[in-house]
C-alpha cells in the first residue's frame, strides 16, 4: 500500500477497475469514450468542460489527464485558465447563492 492517498501512477491503472467488475467497467469505459467523441459539441469543447469540472470536483487525476488532453488538442493555456475560472465561478456562485437562503431565514426569524 502507498503511504499517501493519491499517486500519479495510479492514473495509468484506471482501466484495471474492470478486472473486479468487467460488466460495469466495460459499460463505464464505453460510455466514457462515447461522451468525448465529436458530436453536437466538438471534442475540443468537451475537453475544456472536462477540465473545468475536474477542478470543481477536485480530482487530481482528472486535472492531469485533461491538461494533457488539452495540450494534445492544441488548446492554449489562456483557454484552459478561462475554463477553470468558469468552473470556479459556478462553484463560488453556488456557495453565494445560498446567501439568499441565509437572508430568507434571517428575515423569517427576525421581528
Amino acid at each position: 500500500m502507498a503511504d499517501s492517498y493519491y499517486d500519479p501512477k495510479d492514473l495509468r491503472k484506471f482501466g484495471k477497475i474492470s478486472e473486479w467488475s468487467e460488466e460495469l467497467g466495460t459499460k463505464f469505459f464505453d460510455y466514457y469514450g462515447a461522451v468525448f467523441k465529436e458530436g453536437a459539441l466538438s471534442a475540443r469543447e468537451k475537453s475544456l468542460i472536462a477540465l473545468a469540472v475536474s477542478h470543481v470536483v477536485k480530482c487530481p487525476y482528472c486535472i492531469d489527464a485533461y491538461t494533457k488532453d488539452g495540450l494534445q488538442k492544441g488548446i492554449t493555456k489562456e483557454e484552459m485558465m478561462e475554463a477553470v475560472h468558469a468552473g470556479a465561478a459556478i462553484e463560488s456562485g453556488a456557495t453565494l447563492v445560498h446567501g439568499v437562503q441565509m437572508m430568507n431565514k434571517y428575515d423569517k426569524l427576525s421581528m
Partner: peptide
C-alpha cells in the same frame, strides 16, 4: 512537450 499530437484533421482545421 511531453504529449502526443491530437487528431490531425481537428488540428488542421484549427491551424
Amino acid at each position: 512537450g511531453a504529449y502526443l499530437p491530437g487528431d490531425q484533421m481537428a488540428l488542421e482545421a484549427d491551424f
